[in-house]
């Protein structure tokens, strides 16, 4: 899922300072699961902002809502009439949701979150980055553990000389070395030999963000002729 953090409340209050009627619109997908921007967080943030604004003598009227998926117009459309009555929308979705609302509605769309990474739930309250969305997956070679996302140096041949004796990364002390994990995993699967006989080609980073903004087209799914 896409993992995000709520911006510090001070920054959110500053962003909202010019506005008196705002819709707080959450997203019930990834950011709800990572407890940053779901219906629940909309309620909490709205209550906090109302309290702060009332206390500072500049009350704010907040409408609350949460779209099933803010990155699709069809789920935002039901909020259209409410949005028309606002001065701005504070989006608690990832950056995709903010962009999507901004292209659809002609009022300021403000971000409440800092979008961070593609991650997994480690345990409740902890999320870890495991995919970098590089556009050229090699997980079949690495036992399902991504060295691009989980190695601080994005190495294709590891571990590097900096790995600690306890198998942690030299860059991030409490972070397990992705390559140590890959080798252990392949050993468990009885596939270590395969790794040894695979020549990792130099990575083509043009499919990553280094090639500029990306776009996906599926000709067979396009509705127009």
């Amino acid at each position: 899922m896409i993992v995000a953090d709520q911006k510090p409340i001070e920054e959110i209050l500053e962003i909202l300072a010019p506005y008196k009627r705002v819709l707080f619109l959450g997203c019930q997908s990834c950011v709800a699961v990572c407890m940053a921007g779901g219906e629940k967080e909309v309620g909490l943030l709205a209550a906090a902002v109302r309290l702060a604004r009332a206390k500072s003598g500049a009350p704010i009227e907040i409408a609350e809502g949460a779209a099933k998926r803010q990155c699709d117009d069809e789920f935002n459309e039901p909020f259209g009439p409410v949005i028309q009555q606002q001065e701005a929308v504070l989006s608690l979705a990832c950056g995709v949701g903010v962009n999507k609302l901004a292209e659809r509605f002609a009022i300021p769309i403000l971000p409440a979150l800092n979008t961070r990474f593609f991650g997994k739930v480690e345990r409740q309250g902890i999320w870890k980055e495991v995919c970098a969305g590089c556009g050229d997956c090699i997980l079949h070679l690495t036992g399902g553990i991504c060295p691009i996302a989980r190695c601080a140096k994005n190495l294709l041949n590891g571990p590097c000389g900096g790995v600690r004796a306890d198998g942690t990364c030299e860059v991030k002390r409490d972070w397990p070395c992705a390559w140590v994990q890959i080798i252990q995993r392949l050993e468990e699967l009885g596939q270590l030999e395969r790794l040894l006989s695979t020549r990792m080609a130099a990575k083509d980073w043009s499919s990553d963000r280094h090639g500029g903004p990306r776009r996906r087209v599926r000709e067979d799914m396009l509705l127009e002729a």
Partner: peptide, 8 residues
């Protein structure tokens, strides 16, 4: 902690 940051 949140209250303090809200000025309460």
């Amino acid at each position: 902690n949140l209250l303090e940051r809200l000025g309460i």
